[in-house]
Nucleic acid binder design. Sequence first.
DNA 1: GAGTTTGAAACT
DNA 2: CAGTTTCAAACTC
Length: 764
Amino acid sequence: MDTPERNRLNTPVSKFEDSPVFNYINNLSPIKTVKSVHITQTFNSLSFSSPPSVFTSPHVSCLKESRFVSRHNQFGTSKPKVSSEDVNKVHSSEEALAIHGDHDSNEPQENADRGISVEDASIELSGEHTKFSVELPQALQYNCGSTSYDPPLRDDEANTLLELPGEAAPEVAYVQQIVSIEHEVHIQEMCQVEENGEGADCDWDSLLPNATDLLLFNSPNQAETFKNLMQKPLRSSMRLGDVMSLLPQSTLSNDQNIHTVDSVVPGAEHEIEANCSETVAINSTEPSQDTLADVDLSTSNPNEKMDDKVVSVTHRGTRRRCLDFEMASVRTKNSDGNSNASSSTTQSEVRIAANEKQLLPIKRDANSQRRMLPGIGLHLNALATFTDYKGIQQSEKFSSSGRQLSLASSSSLQLSASLEHQNLVPVTAERELDPSENGVQPAEDSSQAASEDFNQNSPKKKRRKVEPAGDTEGCKRCNCKKSKCLKLYCECFAAGVYCIEPCSCQDCFNKPIHEDTVLQTRKQIESRNPLAFAPKVIRNSDSVPEIGDDPNKTPASARHKRGCNCKKSNCLKKYCECYQGGVGCSISCRCEGCKNAFGRKDGSAQAEPEEETETSNKGVMEKALQKTEIQNIEEHQDSSVAATPLRLSRPLLPLPFSSKGKPPRSFVTTISGSALFTSQKLGKPNSLWSQANKHFQGVVPEDDEMPDILHGDSSPIACIKSSSPNSKRISSPNCEMRSSPSRRGGRKLILQSIPSFPSLTTHP
DNA sequence: GAGTTTGAAACT
DNA sequence: CAGTTTCAAACTC
């Protein structure tokens, strides 16, 4: 896939990027930067996420999504600040960070207050042991705090961040997030693993409190319970070896995720390692050291949670796509900035290698995973993951209980978090965090690559297995041959997502490498039709004038924006956009012989497919129903993506088919939809949108069904509604704020997923 | 997997 | 805006 396209299209650039040298450089660069400036990096990292992806809308949304704030809120003030969109936030965040830095080392409670959650905990832990926290660059801490999932900063913020010296930042941030997540997971794992506990080196007890805080147990009881657990095991000093053991093979072999992160950002490494083990954290203090290497070496095999981890890894991969998507732009920046980085140094070359994979999506080898675009893809991915793992429900529970961690906002994150939690895979967290949000391709790659690597055992395979081969929906792929994936013919492009490996497209320009081209093309199309990338299906009578007007004609709550023009399919096949979107035909439709199960144009049919689903009517319907769960999830993600991240976590939405038809690519992606996502892919994107719209509209009902996590989102959604009438994805800041508490997760995803038009966004 | 059908997107 | 062509997904075999 890539190769051909690259060769043709990319030509110099693509080739250049493809070249091993380029990749290597990229890898190196990030590392250097990180090392060079820890703190700054952090910020950078933030900025990193910010960079607009090709698909503007998503990015914008992402920025907006800063919902992180909401997360932060949960965690604590500091994070919120970070998350907060306002540039001020950045500053505030910095301040907060600085504060945290102090606090972290000193006060655990603060963490709790902050809602720092895992990250903080990790830091604190390290701090206690080694006082790692202090040593850690503020940036890291900051990130940690903010991150955990924090969503990418706003553009403004990003810019400011970018200005900061550190270049590596993006990745750093990413790493941090991951770390934070991982910390949580790892902590748990470690507790379990280390029960053997050797050591007394660490004062786990002291740490524990923090850790618990970090964990973000929803309920005090949980926290206590957790503490108890932790104390036993944790008290023993954790060693890299232990950590390693904890970490799944994937971690080791694949470390990529971790390594990558590490390599990218020194601080990140620390954190990550910290997650893994205290020693790691210590190492982190010493960037130059090959702590990582040590770790790797030490780690022998962690069998235990390998599977889980593997799974998580897989998820990551998916997620990353979405993220990557967004990241694309970022990457570019990063690559540029990072390129500087010369000496990766310490983290040992191994890491670098790993990093390379992760960082450079392009590299991906063979798999080809092209690039999974970030953004939307995320959502989809997330969805896919969910489906695959099924843990969805569990995840929900988890989220509900632990929502704090991932749940936060981004659906993708949430998903990942939930998944991870379930799986207990720390690694995933990494991906979830930033990648999704950022959508950096590298992340994807790395994630995927890592997953693959791991998976040789199985991770990806699982995913794939679980998910239907095709993408499962989650990740859709296009098969464009002549459009170069720069026209709406291309599902990926239409969804605002970059094409990924799975795509069978030829001469594809819908890649991060061609971001400029993609953007330009997109603009052109939008100039021609401002709603070209908007969801085709609008949920709710509100959104659709049509519907409101004629209930009969428009039975369904959602309608296709333009209406279909079917002549032969009787609106009973996916050829029909209305049907595909799971909505009934409306007056606006020019279809002939409409028999749309979701609602006929004449109104004879019922409107709502969902309920009606005249499943009996059509096998299609049945199929749709079958997919419904997944779709619902996706939808949620999408919606979440669009509106709020949280939804992702929700696995099940009652949504009708809407999404079903196609799985949203990425979901998210949403586009970096869930990345992910502009998700654009509403296409199902439409459906997604429609669903999203529904969510907005009918937040309440959804909420009911929705898991706690989702609920969290719901509020945001509501906000969104208020803020943006029909749907549009953009969530208002307020919403974010609200949501933030519950959601920490990836808001970016949402943004990404959101199509450009969502201008709504801004909520402020 | 190849070929056909279909309707949206793009073009005129 | 209408008609035609192009395109890729959806569908069928």
